[in-house]
Amino acid sequence: MFEARLLRGSILKKVLEAIKDLLTQATFDCDDSGIQLQAMDNSHVSLVSLQLRADGFDKYRCDRNISMGMNLNSVAKILKCAGDKDTVTMKAQDNADTVTFVFESPNQEKVSDYEMKLMNLDLEHLGIPETEYSCTIRMPSAEFARICRDLSQFGDSMVIACTKEGVKFSATGEIGSANIKLAQTASVDKEEEAVIIEMDEPVTLTFACQYLNYFTKATSLSPQVQLSMSADVPLVVEYRIQDIGHIRYYLAPKIED
């Protein structure tokens, strides 16, 4: 028996919004530590890694490890039927070929259940090596979303250059060029609003704007985002989900001209 109940059901709605444009299907691996999902987009350029810890759920039971392959468009359709304040419960029997989503309104007056067929997915699971990153940048997630949106008007690629002075985002295209520089916040009153840079070595890497824009669909999950970069390795864009886990996106760089 698998059962995971979340009073803050809107978290699951937001998680689906954050992955459904990048992935069409994925496997939710459940064990007694929680729910994990790792999947690459179709072009094998980016990867989503989601972790929801068991202790972040209001009720969590997983008697046997279970892997549930799901069509994410279908899951997103079902979760759209949940109210923002609903409690969401996912449950499945051992060896089941369906999963059931139960939505309960705050006053318990409306209870809905949606049963969905599971899929057998044979997806590639990549091993991600432990990496010490040369630069980590923490910044407001809404600011990062704004920068990605603004710069993608100028070109398909964005250069992210991190030095000890700050971080510069740049794009160049037919209409011209754009540069956005963010300095490290001098004094941190509200950590959520701060730009904080930890740098061992400066790093400059180029990434496809399209994927960065997909990642920013996770903005509503966290007020802050963390970018981790080292020369010639994939970028990590991490949104922490309060008290329950995180969603990390990895993006392979482009080779610079």
């Binding site: 091993g127 496809a208 760089p253 080779i255 001209d257």
Partner: peptide, 14 residues
């Protein structure tokens, strides 16, 4: 393809 690299260049295949 415009210099885009793939994750399999960096991550370990099973």
């Amino acid at each position: 393809n415009d210099g885009q690299r793939f994750l399999s260049d960096f991550f370990i295949q099973p």
